Every structure is written in C-alpha cells, then in structure tokens.
Simulated scan of single mutants.
Amino acid sequence: MQPRIPRQSAGEQLDRPPDGPDSDVRFSEELASVVSGARRRAVRDGDRQIDTAHLLHSLLEYDPEARAVLGEGPQVARLLGYLVQRSIGYGLRWQSTVEESGAVPVVTGDAGFSPLAAAAMEDARARAARRGDARACGVDLLAALVADPQARAVEVLGRAAVEPRTVLTRVERHFEPTP
C-alpha cells in the first residue's frame, strides 16, 4: 500500500514554509503555489498521490499565464467543470489507482506524486533549463502535463475538447521572443 499524503491543519499550512518538492528552488513562486494547491486537492479528494489532473486543476486556478495559453472563454470553463467533477463523477475510477505509463520511467524522490506527475515536474524543470531559465514556470508544467498521452490531465483535456498538440504549439509561441 502506498503512503497517503500527510494531512495538515490550515494553520500548519499557513505558518510554516513549504517543504519537499513544493519548495524546490527550481520552481517559480507561482509553480510552488500550484504544487501546494495540487497537494491540498489530493488530500481533500482522498487520493494517495498528486496526479497530473490535480496539477492541471491547480495550474488553472493559480497561474494566469498557463490559463491564458489554454485560451479564453468557454473552453477553459468546460475544462474546469470536468476537473471539479473529478471527485463526484468520472474521476472516481481513478481513486486507489496509481497514474503511470510505460512511456515514462518512474521518477523517485518526489514523495506524494504519481509516477507521471513526478515525470512531468522533472520535464518542466528540464524545459526551463533548456531555455536557460533557472526556474520552471507554470507554462513549462503545462507543456509537460500534455506530453504523455496516458496522463490523466490529457484525458481531462480531451473531454473538454482541448487538443494537446494545440497546447504545445501555444506553449512554444508563448516562449518565442517578441519583436
């Protein structure tokens, strides 16, 4: 049995600095907030691990740049609607299962993350490094979340009629230098 993500009171969460992968210096402040929000969501949902859908949901809530890359209007609202339904609808089949794919190696050391979520976090860091940035941002994570077709985040995007290739194209445009 996999360990559960430890529960904390609201006071504990506010009074102490984040530890573990949330506080990684390779994350922007916004991305650290995204990870903390995903951790709280996983605990609230009674899930054993933070998965890519938790990260996507938190990314849409906390990172306006990532939300803008996904687009405006009804598409983002529909996407958030599917993510909210996770604990009462289709996402129930995910409970008590580990999100993994044969397409990515299992990454160890990020306690509390599913193998795909841990790989996405590592990919976000690598994307930032390739750009010459010391810290990964939410848009890096968004690109990493849509990279594996087996990710729960990709399934949610598909239900909301958001094409992962389109998201990757928008991410590339986001990082292109402006004239």
Rank of each mutant, 00 (worst) to 15 (best):
M1P: 00
M1Q: 04
P6W: 06
R7W: 11
A10S: 12
G11F: 09
Q13M: 05
Q13F: 12
Q13W: 13
L14R: 15
D15E: 09
R16S: 12
R16N: 10
P21L: 14
V25H: 14
F27I: 08
S28T: 14
E29K: 04
A32R: 13
V34F: 07
S36I: 07
S36N: 11
R39N: 01
R39K: 13
R40S: 10
V43K: 13
R44L: 12
D47C: 12
R48K: 03
I50L: 09
I50C: 02
I50M: 04
T52W: 09
T52A: 11
A53N: 04
L55D: 03
L55Y: 10
L56M: 04
L56H: 03
S58Q: 14
L59G: 01
D63E: 00
E65T: 04
R67C: 10
A68T: 05
V69R: 04
L70N: 02
L70Y: 12
G71E: 02
E72V: 02
E72S: 11
G73D: 07
V76K: 03
A77S: 10
A77V: 06
R78A: 12
R78T: 08
L79M: 10
L80P: 06
Y82L: 05
L83T: 00
V84L: 15
Q85S: 13
R86N: 00
S87C: 00
I88M: 10
G89M: 09
Y90E: 11
R93D: 03
Q95D: 02
Q95M: 01
S96K: 12
T97F: 09
V98Y: 01
E100F: 08
G102T: 14
G102K: 15
A103N: 14
T108A: 14
G109Y: 11
D110K: 10
L116W: 05
A117P: 01
A119L: 01
M121C: 01
D123T: 06
A124D: 03
A126S: 12
A128E: 07
A129E: 12
R130M: 09
R130I: 06
R131D: 06
G132T: 01
D133F: 15
D133Q: 15
D133G: 05
A134R: 10
C137H: 09
V139I: 03
D140L: 11
L141C: 05
L142R: 03
A144I: 02
A144L: 07
Q150D: 15
A160V: 03
R165C: 00
R165H: 07
T166P: 00
T166A: 13
T169P: 01
R170E: 02
V171M: 06
R173E: 06
E176R: 15
P177F: 14
T178K: 13
T178S: 08
P179E: 01
P179G: 04
